[in-house]
């Protein structure tokens, strides 16, 4: 009797496990399918080419050109990555090759807490610090006038949010470089920096690229912090100190109104679909690079 109860328990929980497995494989397909289904309306009436490359945005007249939003997203993302890249790279190298054990023990919680701070907090901080900094200091420095709410501010806040994310991946990647190679280079008389430059960085170059690709996809979808500092004005920005309007901000700002106009609803879901496709593309790319790296070793 006891044996039977055990078997039944095993059956039930085994069944649940299988159900969960199916769920996890269906979920991404479900997300893709629901966004496709919802944005079908606008893709049929306007055509994907027009949607992506027209810059006329008049939802009430039924004209939906996503170009200003896409270009804003691209600017903010690239700017954020460019600012964050050297900081992450240098810190990751320092922590893996120069810093003592005690330093890594001390830095671990620092990175973890930075990673754990909610994006809305980064947004508040951005409004308090980055906005005045961009408006009063950076913009005049480059000879522009700006309120501070700009692509630049978005890029700066994004850069700071990306640091813990990319840094963690980079540290993992530098750890996979065999110590022997680094030490062989040192023993041949190369300095520490030379060994890092010619051995460590060269060897892990694909990994570094994939870390930044992951960062890019994270940056592309970041919503609230960027939305709070970027200005949210529809239009193709002419310089970095003008306000922009990235795709996630577009979705977040209009969620209330979209129900009343089916076309608008469909347009916002199309924006979500663009986000999904771009993010998944860069994710896949970096995964394949990492898998390739692991195989090579």
């Amino acid at each position: 009797m006891y044996l039977k109860a055990r078997k039944i328990k095993d059956r039930i929980s085994g069944g649940w496990v299988q159900l969960v497995l199916v769920f996890v494989f269906v979920l991404p397909l479900g997300i893709l399918a629901s966004l496709l289904y919802k944005s079908w309306l606008i893709m049929q009436t306007t055509g994907i080419g027009d949607l992506l490359f027209s810059s006329v945005w008049r939802p009430l007249a039924g004209e939906f050109g996503f170009f200003p939003f896409i270009i804003s997203s691209i600017w903010v993302t690239i700017l954020g990555l460019l600012i964050t890249a050297p900081i992450c790279l240098f810190t990751a190298i320092y922590l893996t090759y120069y810093g003592s054990n005690r330093l890594s023990v001390f830095m671990r919680p620092v990175i973890d807490i930075l990673a754990g701070i909610p994006s809305v907090i980064y947004g508040v901080w951005g409004v308090l610090i980055i906005i005045p900094f961009t408006g009063r200091f950076l913009a005049p420095l480059f000879g522009y006038e700006s309120t501070g709410f700009s692509i630049m501010a978005g890029g700066l806040v994004l850069a700071i949010m990306l640091i813990p994310f990319i840094l963690n991946i980079l540290i993992e990647i530098f750890r996979t470089v065999p110590v022997e190679q680094y030490e062989a280079s040192l023993s041949l008389g190369a300095t520490q920096w030379e060994s890092i430059k010619h051995v460590v960085v060269r060897r892990s170059f694909p990994g570094i690229v994939s870390a930044f690709a992951l960062g890019l996809s994270r940056a592309f979808g970041e919503t609230i912090a960027v939305l709070m500092v970027v200005g949210n004005v529809v239009g193709v920005p002419e310089n970095l100190f003008q306000p922009g309007y990235p795709l996630p901000a577009l979705i977040a700002n209009n969620y209330g109104e979209m129900l009343s106009i089916p076309m608008f609803d469909s347009a916002l879901m199309f924006a979500a679909l663009i986000l999904l496709v771009v993010v998944v593309f860069f994710n896949l790319l970096s995964r394949f690079v990492i898998i390739y790296l692991e195989k090579r070793q």
Binding site: V24, L27, I31, L35, Y37, G221, A252, V279, L284
Partner: peptide, 23 residues
Amino acid sequence: AIRFVLDLLWGIPSIVYGAFGFT
């Protein structure tokens, strides 16, 4: 395959989950 799908899901921005949840 499961780890791969999870990594994929992990990368999807929360606003897309929001839109999905809404639908």
